Computed example of a mutant assay.
Amino acid sequence: MASLFDAARACLDADTPEAKLALTAQAAADFADGVFATLEDERAPEPIRMPGRPPRPRLVHPRELPRRGFGSNEGRAAFIHAVAHIEFNAIDLAWDAVYRFRHFPADYYRDWVGVAADEARHFAMLRERLREFGHDYGDFDAHNGLWEMAEKTAHDALARMALVPRVLEARGLDVTPGMIEKLRALGDDKTAEILVVILREEVAHVAAGSRWYRWCCEFHGIEPRAKFRELLAEYARPVLHGPFNLEARSAAGFDEEELASLQQLDAKHP
């Protein structure tokens, strides 16, 4: 394909895990090899829509998802499936960040193509582990919260960078260390090690969101800290929960004032 945006659209449209992973790997390799002659495209992106998905998992409201503990193999398989579903969504989120927002510096596209490739690798590792538990992707219900935020921010790259990487994906920085600890306590070091890899690489993904959020603010002459507080209050109250992994968030580009704002909003909305 001559256009990175066409490649991103093809990855978004792919409706099986196998096709999405294969097209993502090819597009990332083509980008690294300089196959895409230009990163300019005067065509407007299509209106946002649901990306290609397999018929399963069934998407339900988060309240309809049963709460399962880690103590049984079935419970652990459901947990691995939930994380795999997040990573599958994250592939689409990264490609939509490439496809939807035009006329950015080349480093912007380099960052999000790299994120898409990472998320695809994370999904593949989790799917392999899920199969070792006798299940596959689609065997458990899931929810669509990540993509719903993509729809809400399709009009504005600044809002997308603030709310998807720096709120929803950053949530993984907060909760994953506890998950790793629980898995190790159960003797499931294999799943724990997959999460260690994901946690380490997600710091860089959230950092990319921080970098391009601030770039957007500077481009538009907006003060980033006040704008972040405004966006948190408008969009993120239902999904904002402490405690926060302050060390990981700091490494991912949150400054002290932003971390304080998160904690204040959390305290106001228990």
Rank of each mutant, 00 (worst) to 15 (best):
A233R: 09
H103F: 12
L186P: 06
M1R: 08
A78N: 06
R102M: 07
H220V: 00
G52C: 07
T191A: 07
L126Q: 10
D136L: 00
T191P: 02
D118R: 11
K190L: 05
L186I: 07
D188H: 12
L158F: 00
R127C: 01
D92K: 09
E132N: 11
L4C: 10
H241E: 06
R127K: 11
G75R: 07
D189E: 14
G114C: 05
N144W: 11
K268A: 15
A10D: 15
K227G: 04
K268S: 15
R129H: 09
R249P: 01
A29S: 13
L126T: 14
P238E: 08
A97K: 04
A233K: 02
M149E: 06
E258S: 10
P224W: 00
P55L: 03
R229L: 13
N89T: 06
G69T: 07
T16A: 06
R229A: 13
A185N: 09
F79Y: 15
H61N: 09
E169Y: 02
Y109K: 05
E181T: 11
L93H: 14
A208N: 10
R63E: 15
Y109S: 04
R166W: 01
P62V: 04
E258A: 13
F36R: 08
A233M: 02
F254P: 02
R229E: 12
A154H: 11
E234A: 11
F79N: 04
D136H: 05
E42R: 12
A106H: 13
G134W: 12
E128D: 12
R166S: 01
L163M: 09
A192E: 08
D188M: 09
E193W: 03
V167Y: 05
A124Q: 12
D156Y: 00
T16C: 08
G34I: 04
A90Y: 13
A90M: 02
E42H: 11
A19H: 00
D266K: 14
F5L: 10
A192T: 06
P17N: 02
H122P: 00
W212S: 05
P243Y: 09
L265F: 14
P238C: 03
F36N: 10
H155F: 00
A192F: 01
H205Y: 09
G34L: 03
